[in-house]
Design a protein around this nucleic acid. Structure first.
Lengths: 139, 139
DNA sequence: CGGAATCCGGTACGATACTG
DNA sequence: CAGTATCGTACCGGATTCCG
């Protein structure tokens, strides 16, 4: 009811600037978004964007709450999509470094907007959540 | 090895502009990102940003590949986070409309960058994927 | 030693059938 | 029309084991 239609129009404009509503392209982009809009992928990109090249265990330490398996899996997927490079140094103890590619950096830059949005709207989301829970508790 | 460090620095700068590396805030933002960086959430936001208010079945039609269950669940979560409003019209046949809130619109706008990135780098990702698969096939 | 592959319990997901 | 309910499946996550 309290929706800002001006901002809405702005979003529409921005979207249609680059997306001329071609269904095929739309589907492809959707697929890419679906792949990339992953919980861990985003956080890993952020960590790598902040720290540069990192080793596996360093990465595991920075990305709190992730299991080794998911970290491995996510990194593999990201490598497949060309978001990170995986460099193995044949030394003992073994050393593997992960680093963002240009593609990954670009995604990181693009995702900055969302990051900033998340920061600025932390409270709003918290409030909405509490309001929703209160509403549901009542019934 | 072919990483653009200038762009890297730019990403860092952008990130540190609004994120002064406070661990607590970082964790909260991470949590929000993790919630919001969902495959379906993003696509639904995009569809709603494009079309305005939509009914359940319309939404189901526009978001190809989603099941009723996930659509319901995702919409509920989004409502809880304050991203969409759910309006029930007490008529027969029943009618429920979903619409982005200001918060949701903001997220849509913030996500535009990622959307554009996805479009511009479709080919790059496709190439990276094929190269990776070829590499893996060889071994 | 650090990183990846393996097994297994839990949970989230998809398809179908059923209410208001 | 807009969901809930149920059930089978596939994926997620933890602990363990294996490889270089």
């Amino acid at each position: 009811m309290n929706v800002d239609f001006a901002k809405h129009a702005q979003v529409q404009a921005k979207l249609s600037t680059e997306a001329p509503l071609d269904p095929r392209i739309q589907a492809l982009v959707n697929e890419v978004i679906a792949r990339v809009a992953d919980k861990w992928t985003m956080i890993i990109i952020d960590v790598l964007a902040e720290h540069g090249a990192l080793r596996f265990t360093q990465l595991a330490g920075k990305v709190s709450g992730i299991s080794q398996k998911m970290l491995t899996q996510t990194l593999r997927d990201m490598e497949r999509e060309g978001l990170v490079t995986r460099t193995v140094y044949p030394v003992v103890p073994p050393k593997v470094e992960y680093q963002l590619t240009d593609l990954g950096l670009g995604l990181g830059a693009a995702f900055c907007g969302v990051w900033i949005w998340a920061e600025q709207n932390l409270e709003g989301i918290e409030q909405a959540r509490m309001a929703y829970d209160a509403r549901n508790q009542a019934r």
